Amino acid sequence: MEKISEVMNTDVQTISPDATIEEAAQEMRDGDFGLIPVGEEDDLLGVITDRDIAIRAVAEGKDPDTPVREVMSEGVVSAHEDDSIEEAAQIMSDHQIRRLPIVDAGNRLVGIVSLGDFAVESSDISAVAEALSEISSPP
């Protein structure tokens, strides 16, 4: 059984909780992604998504210089680097998320997995596909 550490992307960009939401939006645009883990050193404090910026900032009339910490999502769902690919896929399915931060035993961010990583890398694709088929399905 493959571990999630075998398919995760270890080149994870993080943003400081003190960065502005404008900086976060620019990083999302430049990197073509919709989620950035928020951290200090390697501690995962939360994530900020394009939806967080739209709903918790723009829709509420917040300025572009609003700190990320004011609009980020806390209580981040993550998987452990030793979890199987199937376990990580099930977590993503259960929580209806497309990107999953991966942490080590010390709860330090070591990688991130997106839906595309499973399709390209996993040899156990049928089990993964079954677990992921629920993502974005109507409840």
Rank of each mutant, 00 (worst) to 15 (best):
E6D: 14
V7M: 07
N9S: 14
T14V: 12
D18C: 02
I21L: 01
I21M: 14
E22C: 10
E23Q: 15
A24R: 00
Q26K: 13
E27C: 13
E27N: 14
D30N: 09
G34D: 04
L35M: 15
I36T: 02
P37V: 01
G39T: 01
D42K: 09
D43R: 14
L45Q: 04
I48Y: 02
D50C: 13
D52R: 00
I53G: 02
A54K: 11
R56K: 13
V58Q: 01
D63M: 12
P64T: 11
P64W: 04
P64M: 11
D65Q: 15
T66Y: 06
R69K: 12
R69G: 02
E70R: 03
V71L: 01
V71H: 02
M72P: 04
M72H: 02
G75M: 04
G75S: 12
V76Y: 04
V77P: 07
A79N: 12
A79P: 08
A79Q: 05
A79W: 05
D82I: 11
D82M: 12
D83C: 00
S84Q: 01
I85E: 07
I85Q: 05
E86P: 07
A88Q: 04
A88W: 04
I91F: 08
S93G: 10
S93E: 08
I97Y: 06
I97H: 03
I97D: 09
I97M: 11
R99V: 04
P101L: 04
D104F: 03
A105I: 09
R108I: 08
L109W: 00
G111N: 01
V120W: 15
E121K: 15
E121Q: 14
S122R: 07
